[in-house]
Design a protein around this nucleic acid. Structure first.
Lengths: 242, 242
DNA sequence: ATCCGGCCTGCGGAAACCCGCAAATGCCCT
DNA sequence: AGGGCATTTGCGGGTTTCCGCAGGCCGGAT
């Protein structure tokens, strides 16, 4: 059994390697990659079936790397080990995990025992393990947003990237009015009105983005990925339009 | 000499303590705080003159903590030790550092030697030390934005929080037209138009925020702090209006 | 069958945003 | 003093956003 660690922080990497050595004595080789790209390369080369992956890394982040790895070898088991429990990360992962695979999500603040357990459950037994704190994001005393629809989330991301109503409509295949309806429900769920004491009227669109960021419904990492997709869509549109 | 470490990541804290012990043999006591609040308390209690501070911490971040510490004891020397080199952090720090004090800014990716040197230069010699990579943020292949004015930056933050033109004008003491002029120059500097291929017209306001985030001119941490100030300003306005 | 709730769509208008034009102010430099 | 140069402000109008009203489609519960 070969295990790949993808982690760009040297201290975390050292700790992780140590724990993996203890938790998985059947691992005859432990490879370390220091960002998403390296991780993809190593996974491809080493025919690796078990991965522990950090999410936040400079350059290529963990979700992007996981996507390409799973596309090439869907049975790969991946344990995500991250500092954050943002809704955006969860959404990103649950969207791309293949049916035949196992994955886990453990916070870096978890105890050594918890990490140990998760390593065995996911990488050896092939189970699905998600830290409870992650799933209901209790930490940072942030009350979870009333859950968003897929459509609402898609519109939120597009708006956060700076698309106009017309562009969102075009991209999502809706009418402009529908986009605006999604926006209305977003304004509601994100509590955009809350600060409106009297004559103070905010720019709801920007306020919604700010609230979504504050509540960690979206995060800059996810936006970066979405921006890439947007750019690709844009060139496709330009070609079609010409 | 007493040294206070403020760092919420246990692995980083362990490494930091070790390095400080080696670099500063004159330190007869090394105290560890695990977030900004604890840091303030310890600094107050221990009559501490030298601090190494992480910037990103859950709860109260390093900049907020540094501000209150410097307000109470302006001669305190603080070395910031951070993962990031965002413009927003730099701006936040240079805005609050007192004249009579020394500070430094070192990236966590710096070598042990660099950290060692910075520890001695800042905490013992009282010099100002800033990692070169930080000051011109070359990393992440992000080309720095043509530097923003203070006024532009203030408007950008307000807009990112979701304020309308009128509110920004009121808060910054400008006319609405001036706010819009600042916005125009922001749209220019942040290259908001770049994606406008043909009929694709973006929402410039939201796009500007997205660009600023992507270029790391602002970051969610700084926005969180700014949101707090905004809330305080709002209640003040409400009282005055009534 | 009927009703209910959710999502989609068009219409129309108030408000906000975006911005060119032009005049006023202030600062620096010669 | 006078000539740039940047910043501020008002005016006016084109565009976009925001949203109530009203109607259509659809799946599920009564």
């Amino acid at each position: 059994m070969k295990v790949l660690l993808v982690e760009d922080d040297q201290f975390h990497a050292a700790y992780l390697r140590e724990t993996v050595q203890k938790a998985l004595p059947e691992a005859e080789e432990i490879v370390l990659a220091r960002d998403g790209h390296q991780g993809e390369t190593e996974a491809r080369r080493g025919a690796i079936g078990a991965i522990v992956m950090d999410l936040q890394m400079r350059g290529r982040n963990g979700i992007e790397a996981a996507r390409t790895i799973w596309r090439e070898r869907p049975a790969t088991r991946i344990l995500f080990w991250s500092n954050y429990s943002d809704e955006a990360y969860l959404r990103g992962i649950s969207r791309i995990v293949p049916k035949e695979s196992a994955y886990g999500y453990v916070l870096k603040t978890a105890s050594n025992d918890r990490l140990h357990l998760a390593l065995r459950s996911v990488l050896v037994e092939g189970q699905i393990v998600v830290d409870r704190e992650v799933h209901q994001f209790q930490q940072r005393q942030i009350r979870p947003v009333e859950v968003l629809t897929e459509a609402e989330y898609a519109v939120l991301v597009d708006v956060s990237l700076g698309l106009s109503d017309r562009m969102v409509a075009q991209r999502q295949g809706m009418s402009m009015r529908t986009v605006q309806n999604r926006l209305l429900s977003l304004y509601d769920k994100l509590e955009v009105e809350r600060a409106a004491d009297g004559d103070m009227q905010m720019n709801k669109r920007s306020r919604a983005v700010a609230r979504a960021l504050a509540l960690r419904v979206i995060n800059p990492e996810a936006l970066e990925t979405a921006e890439g997709e947007l750019q690709r869509w844009l060139v496709r549109q330009a070609r079609q339009g010409a």
